[in-house]
Design a protein around this nucleic acid. Structure first.
Length: 432
RNA sequence: GUGAGCUUAGCUCAGUUGGUUAGAGCACCAGGUUGUGGUCCUGGGGGUCGGGGGUUCGAAUCCCCUAGCUCACCCCA
Protein backbone atom coordinates (compact mmCIF):
# COMPACT_ATOMS: atom_id res chain seq x y z
CA UNK A 1 0.00 0.00 0.00
CA UNK A 2 1.24 3.43 -0.90
CA UNK A 3 1.85 5.82 1.94
CA UNK A 4 -0.40 8.82 1.70
CA UNK A 5 0.70 12.09 3.22
CA UNK A 6 -1.47 14.85 4.64
CA UNK A 7 -2.81 17.29 2.01
CA UNK A 8 -0.77 20.37 1.22
CA UNK A 9 -1.14 23.17 3.70
CA UNK A 10 -2.50 20.97 6.48
CA UNK A 11 -0.89 19.83 9.70
CA UNK A 12 -0.96 16.69 11.78
CA UNK A 13 -1.24 17.36 15.47
CA UNK A 14 0.92 14.81 17.24
CA UNK A 15 0.86 15.10 21.04
CA UNK A 16 3.51 17.85 21.01
CA UNK A 17 1.67 19.99 18.50
CA UNK A 18 -1.70 19.21 20.02
CA UNK A 19 -0.58 20.46 23.41
CA UNK A 20 0.52 23.74 21.88
CA UNK A 21 -2.74 24.07 19.99
CA UNK A 22 -4.73 23.44 23.16
CA UNK A 23 -2.63 25.98 24.99
CA UNK A 24 -3.46 28.66 22.40
CA UNK A 25 -7.12 27.75 22.51
CA UNK A 26 -7.17 27.71 26.29
CA UNK A 27 -5.73 31.22 26.45
CA UNK A 28 -8.17 32.49 23.85
CA UNK A 29 -11.13 30.93 25.63
CA UNK A 30 -10.04 32.09 29.09
CA UNK A 31 -9.46 35.65 27.91
CA UNK A 32 -12.80 35.75 26.08
CA UNK A 33 -14.82 34.38 28.96
CA UNK A 34 -13.34 36.72 31.51
CA UNK A 35 -14.26 39.63 29.25
CA UNK A 36 -17.85 38.45 29.19
CA UNK A 37 -17.95 37.01 25.70
CA UNK A 38 -20.09 33.95 25.13
CA UNK A 39 -18.87 31.10 22.99
CA UNK A 40 -20.84 30.26 19.87
CA UNK A 41 -20.26 28.07 16.87
CA UNK A 42 -21.82 27.21 13.55
CA UNK A 43 -21.39 24.41 11.06
CA UNK A 44 -17.98 23.74 9.57
CA UNK A 45 -19.56 23.91 6.11
CA UNK A 46 -22.07 26.42 4.87
CA UNK A 47 -23.99 27.20 1.71
CA UNK A 48 -21.54 28.46 -0.86
CA UNK A 49 -23.98 31.30 -1.46
CA UNK A 50 -23.23 32.73 2.00
CA UNK A 51 -19.72 33.66 0.88
CA UNK A 52 -20.53 34.59 -2.72
CA UNK A 53 -23.16 37.03 -1.48
CA UNK A 54 -20.58 38.97 0.41
CA UNK A 55 -17.43 38.64 -1.68
CA UNK A 56 -18.58 37.83 -5.19
CA UNK A 57 -17.98 34.84 -7.47
CA UNK A 58 -14.19 35.24 -7.36
CA UNK A 59 -14.19 33.99 -3.80
CA UNK A 60 -14.98 30.49 -5.06
CA UNK A 61 -11.43 30.08 -6.34
CA UNK A 62 -10.18 30.71 -2.82
CA UNK A 63 -12.23 28.25 -0.86
CA UNK A 64 -12.99 24.55 -0.67
CA UNK A 65 -16.37 23.91 -2.23
CA UNK A 66 -18.35 20.94 -3.47
CA UNK A 67 -21.86 19.81 -4.22
CA UNK A 68 -23.44 17.59 -1.64
CA UNK A 69 -25.39 14.51 -2.71
CA UNK A 70 -28.49 16.60 -3.13
CA UNK A 71 -26.69 18.87 -5.57
CA UNK A 72 -26.49 21.80 -3.11
CA UNK A 73 -23.41 24.03 -3.46
CA UNK A 74 -21.46 23.87 -0.22
CA UNK A 75 -18.27 25.53 1.03
CA UNK A 76 -16.07 24.64 3.97
CA UNK A 77 -15.99 27.82 6.03
CA UNK A 78 -13.04 30.09 5.20
CA UNK A 79 -13.91 32.33 8.17
CA UNK A 80 -16.51 32.53 10.87
CA UNK A 81 -17.81 36.05 10.40
CA UNK A 82 -20.40 35.10 7.76
CA UNK A 83 -21.80 32.36 9.98
CA UNK A 84 -21.94 34.83 12.83
CA UNK A 85 -23.82 37.34 10.74
CA UNK A 86 -26.25 34.64 9.65
CA UNK A 87 -26.84 33.57 13.25
CA UNK A 88 -27.34 37.13 14.47
CA UNK A 89 -29.77 37.99 11.67
CA UNK A 90 -31.82 34.84 12.34
CA UNK A 91 -32.58 35.93 15.90
CA UNK A 92 -31.80 39.60 15.71
CA UNK A 93 -34.90 40.83 17.50
CA UNK A 94 -34.56 38.42 20.39
CA UNK A 95 -30.89 38.82 21.27
CA UNK A 96 -30.06 41.09 24.22
CA UNK A 97 -27.68 43.93 23.37
CA UNK A 98 -24.91 44.32 23.14
CA UNK A 99 -24.16 40.89 21.72
CA UNK A 100 -20.69 39.76 22.78
CA UNK A 101 -19.75 36.48 21.15
CA UNK A 102 -16.52 34.67 20.64
CA UNK A 103 -15.65 31.63 18.59
CA UNK A 104 -12.69 29.39 17.90
CA UNK A 105 -13.17 27.93 14.47
CA UNK A 106 -11.35 25.51 12.25
CA UNK A 107 -11.31 27.11 8.80
CA UNK A 108 -10.05 26.20 5.35
CA UNK A 109 -8.99 28.39 2.47
CA UNK A 110 -7.79 27.18 -0.88
CA UNK A 111 -4.61 29.25 -1.15
CA UNK A 112 -0.97 28.64 -1.85
CA UNK A 113 0.55 27.80 1.50
CA UNK A 114 3.46 29.86 2.74
CA UNK A 115 4.99 31.01 5.98
CA UNK A 116 2.22 31.86 8.40
CA UNK A 117 -0.52 30.88 5.98
CA UNK A 118 -1.86 27.38 5.62
CA UNK A 119 -4.90 25.82 4.00
CA UNK A 120 -6.32 24.72 7.31
CA UNK A 121 -6.01 26.83 10.43
CA UNK A 122 -7.72 27.87 13.61
CA UNK A 123 -9.07 31.32 14.13
CA UNK A 124 -10.23 33.10 17.24
CA UNK A 125 -12.95 35.68 16.73
CA UNK A 126 -14.47 38.13 19.17
CA UNK A 127 -17.34 40.32 18.05
CA UNK A 128 -19.51 42.95 19.66
CA UNK A 129 -22.79 43.80 17.96
CA UNK A 130 -25.32 46.44 18.81
CA UNK A 131 -22.84 48.88 20.30
CA UNK A 132 -21.78 51.93 18.36
CA UNK A 133 -19.11 54.29 19.52
CA UNK A 134 -15.52 53.87 20.57
CA UNK A 135 -16.16 51.93 23.80
CA UNK A 136 -16.82 48.70 21.89
CA UNK A 137 -13.78 49.24 19.65
CA UNK A 138 -11.64 49.82 22.72
CA UNK A 139 -13.07 46.70 24.35
CA UNK A 140 -12.06 44.58 21.35
CA UNK A 141 -8.54 45.95 21.38
CA UNK A 142 -8.36 45.46 25.14
CA UNK A 143 -9.30 41.80 24.81
CA UNK A 144 -6.73 41.27 22.08
CA UNK A 145 -4.05 42.88 24.24
CA UNK A 146 -5.16 40.78 27.18
CA UNK A 147 -4.48 37.65 25.12
CA UNK A 148 -1.07 38.96 24.05
CA UNK A 149 -0.15 39.56 27.67
CA UNK A 150 -1.51 36.17 28.65
CA UNK A 151 0.94 34.70 26.14
CA UNK A 152 3.65 36.60 27.99
CA UNK A 153 4.21 39.13 25.20
CA UNK A 154 5.24 42.68 25.97
CA UNK A 155 4.93 46.03 24.25
CA UNK A 156 8.56 45.60 23.24
CA UNK A 157 7.61 42.52 21.26
CA UNK A 158 4.23 43.31 19.74
CA UNK A 159 2.20 46.36 18.87
CA UNK A 160 -1.31 47.29 17.84
CA UNK A 161 -1.37 49.52 14.78
CA UNK A 162 -4.53 51.55 14.73
CA UNK A 163 -6.13 53.53 11.94
CA UNK A 164 -9.59 54.63 10.95
CA UNK A 165 -11.09 53.98 7.57
CA UNK A 166 -13.50 56.85 8.02
CA UNK A 167 -10.96 59.36 9.26
CA UNK A 168 -8.66 58.47 6.43
CA UNK A 169 -11.33 58.80 3.75
CA UNK A 170 -12.51 62.12 5.19
CA UNK A 171 -8.94 63.42 5.21
CA UNK A 172 -8.27 62.33 1.65
CA UNK A 173 -11.54 63.87 0.53
CA UNK A 174 -10.64 67.15 2.24
CA UNK A 175 -7.33 67.19 0.43
CA UNK A 176 -9.33 67.27 -2.77
CA UNK A 177 -7.84 64.16 -4.30
CA UNK A 178 -9.45 62.87 -7.46
CA UNK A 179 -11.55 59.71 -7.42
CA UNK A 180 -8.84 58.06 -9.44
CA UNK A 181 -6.11 58.99 -6.99
CA UNK A 182 -7.75 57.84 -3.75
CA UNK A 183 -7.59 54.06 -4.38
CA UNK A 184 -3.97 54.46 -5.43
CA UNK A 185 -3.21 56.21 -2.16
CA UNK A 186 -4.80 53.31 -0.29
CA UNK A 187 -2.61 50.91 -2.22
CA UNK A 188 0.53 52.86 -1.33
CA UNK A 189 -0.52 53.06 2.32
CA UNK A 190 -1.01 49.33 2.38
CA UNK A 191 2.37 48.67 0.77
CA UNK A 192 4.32 50.94 3.05
CA UNK A 193 6.60 48.91 5.24
CA UNK A 194 6.28 45.90 2.95
CA UNK A 195 8.30 47.23 0.04
CA UNK A 196 11.45 49.41 0.00
CA UNK A 197 11.11 53.13 0.66
CA UNK A 198 12.29 54.13 -2.79
CA UNK A 199 9.56 51.98 -4.36
CA UNK A 200 7.00 53.72 -2.15
CA UNK A 201 8.45 57.07 -3.18
CA UNK A 202 8.14 56.09 -6.80
CA UNK A 203 4.55 54.89 -6.36
CA UNK A 204 3.56 58.20 -4.76
CA UNK A 205 5.11 60.17 -7.54
CA UNK A 206 3.13 58.16 -10.07
CA UNK A 207 -0.19 59.25 -8.54
CA UNK A 208 -1.71 62.30 -10.20
CA UNK A 209 -2.00 65.08 -7.66
CA UNK A 210 -0.56 68.48 -6.89
CA UNK A 211 2.73 68.86 -5.08
CA UNK A 212 0.89 70.22 -2.08
CA UNK A 213 -1.41 67.19 -2.00
CA UNK A 214 1.55 64.88 -2.39
CA UNK A 215 3.35 66.47 0.52
CA UNK A 216 0.28 66.14 2.72
CA UNK A 217 -0.31 62.54 1.75
CA UNK A 218 3.27 61.77 2.74
CA UNK A 219 2.76 63.59 6.04
CA UNK A 220 -0.36 61.55 6.80
CA UNK A 221 1.47 58.39 5.88
CA UNK A 222 4.30 59.12 8.28
CA UNK A 223 2.08 60.11 11.18
CA UNK A 224 2.38 57.96 14.27
CA UNK A 225 0.15 60.04 16.54
CA UNK A 226 -2.94 62.17 16.12
CA UNK A 227 -1.45 65.34 17.63
CA UNK A 228 -0.62 67.13 14.39
CA UNK A 229 -3.95 66.60 12.68
CA UNK A 230 -6.08 69.54 13.89
CA UNK A 231 -3.69 72.19 12.60
CA UNK A 232 -3.24 70.16 9.47
CA UNK A 233 -6.87 70.40 8.50
CA UNK A 234 -7.63 73.82 9.93
CA UNK A 235 -10.12 72.53 12.50
CA UNK A 236 -12.38 71.03 9.84
CA UNK A 237 -15.43 69.76 11.77
CA UNK A 238 -15.74 66.46 9.88
CA UNK A 239 -12.10 65.63 10.40
CA UNK A 240 -12.31 66.69 14.03
CA UNK A 241 -15.27 64.42 14.66
CA UNK A 242 -13.53 61.36 13.27
CA UNK A 243 -10.35 62.36 15.02
CA UNK A 244 -12.16 62.63 18.32
CA UNK A 245 -13.65 59.19 17.87
CA UNK A 246 -10.31 57.57 17.13
CA UNK A 247 -8.58 59.38 20.01
CA UNK A 248 -11.29 58.13 22.31
CA UNK A 249 -10.60 54.54 21.35
CA UNK A 250 -7.05 55.05 22.57
CA UNK A 251 -7.90 57.04 25.69
CA UNK A 252 -10.59 54.55 26.76
CA UNK A 253 -7.95 51.82 26.79
CA UNK A 254 -6.11 53.56 29.60
CA UNK A 255 -2.39 54.16 29.77
CA UNK A 256 -1.41 50.57 30.40
CA UNK A 257 -3.05 49.06 27.33
CA UNK A 258 -2.50 52.16 25.21
CA UNK A 259 1.24 51.56 25.44
CA UNK A 260 0.72 48.73 22.98
CA UNK A 261 -1.04 51.01 20.50
CA UNK A 262 0.41 53.17 17.76
CA UNK A 263 -1.46 55.19 15.18
CA UNK A 264 -0.60 53.98 11.70
CA UNK A 265 -2.61 54.99 8.64
CA UNK A 266 -0.85 52.21 6.78
CA UNK A 267 -3.41 49.81 8.22
CA UNK A 268 -5.94 49.60 5.41
CA UNK A 269 -7.47 46.11 5.43
CA UNK A 270 -10.48 45.00 3.42
CA UNK A 271 -11.74 48.09 1.73
CA UNK A 272 -15.34 47.00 1.27
CA UNK A 273 -15.72 45.70 4.76
CA UNK A 274 -14.55 48.12 7.42
CA UNK A 275 -16.33 51.35 8.19
CA UNK A 276 -14.51 52.87 11.18
CA UNK A 277 -11.49 52.13 13.31
CA UNK A 278 -9.29 49.34 11.93
CA UNK A 279 -6.27 47.77 13.58
CA UNK A 280 -3.80 44.95 13.32
CA UNK A 281 -1.32 43.41 15.71
CA UNK A 282 2.23 42.82 14.52
CA UNK A 283 5.37 41.47 16.03
CA UNK A 284 7.92 44.25 16.26
CA UNK A 285 10.64 42.47 14.35
CA UNK A 286 8.35 42.74 11.37
CA UNK A 287 9.19 39.27 10.11
CA UNK A 288 5.72 37.78 10.44
CA UNK A 289 2.31 38.34 8.98
CA UNK A 290 -0.20 40.06 11.24
CA UNK A 291 -1.09 38.25 14.44
CA UNK A 292 -4.54 39.66 14.75
CA UNK A 293 -6.76 42.10 12.90
CA UNK A 294 -10.05 43.78 13.46
CA UNK A 295 -12.14 46.86 13.29
CA UNK A 296 -15.60 48.26 12.92
CA UNK A 297 -17.92 46.91 10.24
CA UNK A 298 -21.27 48.59 10.70
CA UNK A 299 -22.66 47.42 7.35
CA UNK A 300 -22.29 43.69 7.78
CA UNK A 301 -25.61 42.85 9.42
CA UNK A 302 -27.67 44.94 7.03
CA UNK A 303 -25.74 43.46 4.12
CA UNK A 304 -26.58 40.01 5.44
CA UNK A 305 -30.30 40.69 5.36
CA UNK A 306 -30.78 42.00 8.89
CA UNK A 307 -31.66 45.40 10.25
CA UNK A 308 -28.77 47.80 10.38
CA UNK A 309 -26.71 47.10 13.47
CA UNK A 310 -23.34 48.48 14.50
CA UNK A 311 -20.63 45.87 14.89
CA UNK A 312 -16.95 45.50 15.55
CA UNK A 313 -14.62 42.63 16.23
CA UNK A 314 -11.37 40.93 15.44
CA UNK A 315 -9.87 37.65 14.36
CA UNK A 316 -6.58 36.01 15.26
CA UNK A 317 -5.05 32.96 13.67
CA UNK A 318 -3.14 30.14 15.32
CA UNK A 319 -0.41 29.85 12.69
CA UNK A 320 1.32 33.21 13.03
CA UNK A 321 0.90 33.23 16.79
CA UNK A 322 2.55 29.82 16.92
CA UNK A 323 5.46 31.05 14.81
CA UNK A 324 5.94 34.05 17.07
CA UNK A 325 5.94 31.94 20.23
CA UNK A 326 8.42 29.64 18.48
CA UNK A 327 10.79 32.45 17.60
CA UNK A 328 10.61 34.01 21.07
CA UNK A 329 10.80 30.62 22.82
CA UNK A 330 7.73 31.85 24.63
CA UNK A 331 5.80 28.62 24.96
CA UNK A 332 5.25 27.59 28.57
CA UNK A 333 8.08 25.39 29.77
CA UNK A 334 6.11 22.29 30.29
CA UNK A 335 2.80 21.68 28.62
CA UNK A 336 3.08 17.94 29.18
CA UNK A 337 0.33 16.60 31.38
CA UNK A 338 1.97 14.72 34.23
CA UNK A 339 0.14 11.88 35.85
CA UNK A 340 -0.22 12.02 39.63
CA UNK A 341 0.32 8.30 40.17
CA UNK A 342 2.04 5.41 38.49
CA UNK A 343 0.88 2.17 40.01
CA UNK A 344 3.60 -0.41 39.51
CA UNK A 345 3.65 -4.04 40.40
CA UNK A 346 6.52 -6.22 41.54
CA UNK A 347 5.22 -9.73 41.07
CA UNK A 348 2.85 -11.30 38.61
CA UNK A 349 0.61 -12.45 41.44
CA UNK A 350 -0.31 -8.85 42.26
CA UNK A 351 -1.11 -7.74 38.74
CA UNK A 352 -4.85 -8.06 39.27
CA UNK A 353 -4.67 -5.49 42.07
CA UNK A 354 -3.23 -2.78 39.83
CA UNK A 355 -6.15 -1.63 37.73
CA UNK A 356 -8.64 -1.60 40.64
CA UNK A 357 -6.33 0.74 42.59
CA UNK A 358 -5.78 2.84 39.50
CA UNK A 359 -9.53 3.14 39.09
CA UNK A 360 -10.00 4.18 42.73
CA UNK A 361 -7.41 6.93 42.28
CA UNK A 362 -9.03 8.07 39.05
CA UNK A 363 -12.46 8.14 40.65
CA UNK A 364 -11.03 10.56 43.21
CA UNK A 365 -10.22 12.86 40.33
CA UNK A 366 -6.51 12.14 40.13
CA UNK A 367 -4.64 10.89 37.12
CA UNK A 368 -3.20 7.43 37.46
CA UNK A 369 -1.43 5.19 34.97
CA UNK A 370 0.15 1.76 35.00
CA UNK A 371 2.16 -0.66 32.93
CA UNK A 372 0.42 -2.28 29.97
CA UNK A 373 3.23 -4.29 28.44
CA UNK A 374 4.46 -6.55 31.25
CA UNK A 375 7.57 -4.56 32.08
CA UNK A 376 9.67 -5.57 35.04
CA UNK A 377 9.67 -3.30 38.07
CA UNK A 378 12.80 -1.46 37.01
CA UNK A 379 11.29 -0.71 33.63
CA UNK A 380 8.00 0.40 35.16
CA UNK A 381 9.70 2.92 37.40
CA UNK A 382 11.89 4.07 34.56
CA UNK A 383 8.79 4.71 32.52
CA UNK A 384 7.09 6.47 35.40
CA UNK A 385 10.09 8.73 35.70
CA UNK A 386 10.27 9.39 32.00
CA UNK A 387 6.66 10.52 32.12
CA UNK A 388 7.29 12.88 35.01
CA UNK A 389 4.86 11.17 37.33
CA UNK A 390 4.66 12.58 40.88
CA UNK A 391 4.15 9.42 42.90
CA UNK A 392 5.10 5.84 42.30
CA UNK A 393 2.92 3.31 44.05
CA UNK A 394 4.42 -0.19 44.35
CA UNK A 395 2.09 -3.10 44.85
CA UNK A 396 3.24 -6.54 45.92
CA UNK A 397 6.55 -5.73 47.52
CA UNK A 398 7.89 -8.22 50.06
CA UNK A 399 8.50 -5.20 52.30
CA UNK A 400 4.83 -4.76 52.98
CA UNK A 401 1.68 -6.72 53.66
CA UNK A 402 -1.22 -7.37 51.31
CA UNK A 403 -3.21 -4.29 52.30
CA UNK A 404 -0.18 -2.02 52.04
CA UNK A 405 1.75 -0.40 49.21
CA UNK A 406 4.96 1.56 48.96
CA UNK A 407 4.43 5.19 48.10
CA UNK A 408 7.44 6.79 46.51
CA UNK A 409 7.77 10.50 45.81
CA UNK A 410 9.52 10.60 42.47
CA UNK A 411 10.94 14.05 43.07
CA UNK A 412 12.23 13.78 46.63
CA UNK A 413 13.00 10.05 46.39
CA UNK A 414 11.25 9.54 49.72
CA UNK A 415 9.56 6.20 50.21
CA UNK A 416 7.14 4.99 52.81
CA UNK A 417 4.88 2.05 53.40
CA UNK A 418 1.24 2.98 53.64
CA UNK A 419 -2.06 1.11 53.94
CA UNK A 420 -4.10 1.34 50.76
CA UNK A 421 -7.12 2.76 52.55
CA UNK A 422 -4.94 5.42 54.19
CA UNK A 423 -3.49 6.32 50.82
CA UNK A 424 -6.95 6.75 49.36
CA UNK A 425 -8.08 8.79 52.34
CA UNK A 426 -5.08 11.12 52.04
CA UNK A 427 -5.72 11.52 48.35
CA UNK A 428 -9.32 12.37 49.08
CA UNK A 429 -8.28 14.88 51.75
CA UNK A 430 -5.85 16.41 49.35
CA UNK A 431 -2.88 15.82 51.66
CA UNK A 432 -1.31 13.69 48.94
C1' G B 1 -1.26 32.36 -11.95
C1' U B 2 4.56 33.78 -11.69
C1' G B 3 9.52 32.86 -9.80
C1' A B 4 13.35 30.53 -6.64
C1' G B 5 15.19 26.76 -3.47
C1' C B 6 15.04 22.03 -1.25
C1' U B 7 14.27 16.32 -1.06
C1' U B 8 19.78 10.95 2.21
C1' A B 9 16.99 6.58 8.81
C1' G B 10 11.00 8.43 12.71
C1' C B 11 13.52 13.79 13.41
C1' U B 12 17.90 17.22 12.46
C1' C B 13 21.60 16.65 9.09
C1' A B 14 27.02 14.82 7.18
C1' G B 15 28.54 12.38 2.76
C1' U B 16 35.54 15.13 -0.34
C1' U B 17 36.75 16.98 -8.13
C1' G B 18 31.76 10.14 -9.39
C1' G B 19 35.15 5.00 -6.46
C1' U B 20 34.36 -0.91 -1.78
C1' U B 21 29.04 -2.88 2.09
C1' A B 22 25.77 5.04 2.69
C1' G B 23 27.11 7.64 8.10
C1' A B 24 26.40 10.77 12.86
C1' G B 25 23.43 12.90 16.75
C1' C B 26 18.65 12.61 18.77
C1' A B 27 14.49 9.27 19.19
C1' C B 28 12.94 4.07 19.55
C1' C B 29 13.91 -1.18 21.29
C1' A B 30 16.96 -4.44 24.25
C1' G B 31 20.93 -5.80 27.62
C1' G B 32 24.35 -4.40 31.67
C1' U B 33 20.53 -4.19 36.37
C1' U B 34 15.19 -11.26 37.16
C1' G B 35 12.37 -6.75 43.80
C1' U B 36 13.07 0.01 42.40
C1' G B 37 13.97 5.73 38.21
C1' G B 38 16.94 10.03 35.85
C1' U B 39 23.45 9.39 34.52
C1' C B 40 26.56 5.96 32.16
C1' C B 41 28.18 1.69 29.07
C1' U B 42 27.03 -2.02 25.26
C1' G B 43 24.14 -3.81 21.43
C1' G B 44 19.86 -3.75 17.98
C1' G B 45 16.05 -2.55 14.47
C1' G B 46 15.20 0.93 10.89
C1' G B 47 17.28 3.62 4.04
C1' U B 48 14.55 0.91 -3.11
C1' C B 49 19.64 8.31 -0.99
C1' G B 50 11.60 11.39 -3.46
C1' G B 51 10.27 8.55 -8.36
C1' G B 52 11.63 7.42 -13.58
C1' G B 53 15.16 7.59 -17.48
C1' G B 54 20.17 8.68 -19.26
C1' U B 55 25.86 9.20 -19.19
C1' U B 56 29.73 5.88 -17.02
C1' C B 57 33.59 0.09 -15.78
C1' G B 58 31.13 2.44 -11.50
C1' A B 59 25.99 7.51 -9.61
C1' A B 60 23.42 9.81 -3.18
C1' U B 61 27.09 12.74 -6.32
C1' C B 62 26.73 14.52 -13.42
C1' C B 63 22.39 15.32 -17.25
C1' C B 64 16.98 15.13 -18.54
C1' C B 65 11.93 14.37 -17.03
C1' U B 66 8.56 14.06 -12.99
C1' A B 67 6.39 14.28 -8.04
C1' G B 68 6.37 16.35 -3.29
C1' C B 69 7.74 20.11 0.12
C1' U B 70 9.32 25.12 1.36
C1' C B 71 9.87 30.32 0.44
C1' A B 72 8.65 34.83 -2.14
C1' C B 73 5.32 37.59 -5.67
C1' C B 74 -0.19 38.03 -6.64
C1' C B 75 -4.11 37.70 -3.12
C1' C B 76 -5.29 37.87 1.92
C1' A B 77 -12.38 37.91 3.94
Amino acid sequence: MAKISAPKGTRDFYPDEMRRRRYLEDVWRRVSLRAGFEEVDGPIFESLELYIQKAGEEIVTQLYNFEDKGGRPIAIRPEFTQSLARMVVARQAALPRPIKWFNISRCCRYERAQKGRLREFFQWNCDILGAEGPAADAECIAVAIDALQEFGLTKEQVEVRLSSRKLLSVMLAKLGLSDAAIPKVYLVLDKRGKVPADVIHHMINEIEMTEDQRKRVVDIMDMSSLDGLPSFFGDDPEVLEQLRELSQVVSLLGDDAAQFVRIDFGIVRGLAYYTGPVWEVFDKTGTLRSLCGGGRYDNLIAASGGKAMPACGFGAGDVTMGLLLDSLHAWPNDLTPRADFYVSCVQAASVSKVLPLVRRLRSLGRSAIHDLISSNIARQIKNADAMGVRYNVVIGSHKCSDDEVILGNMRTHEERTIRIQDLLKSVQDGTI
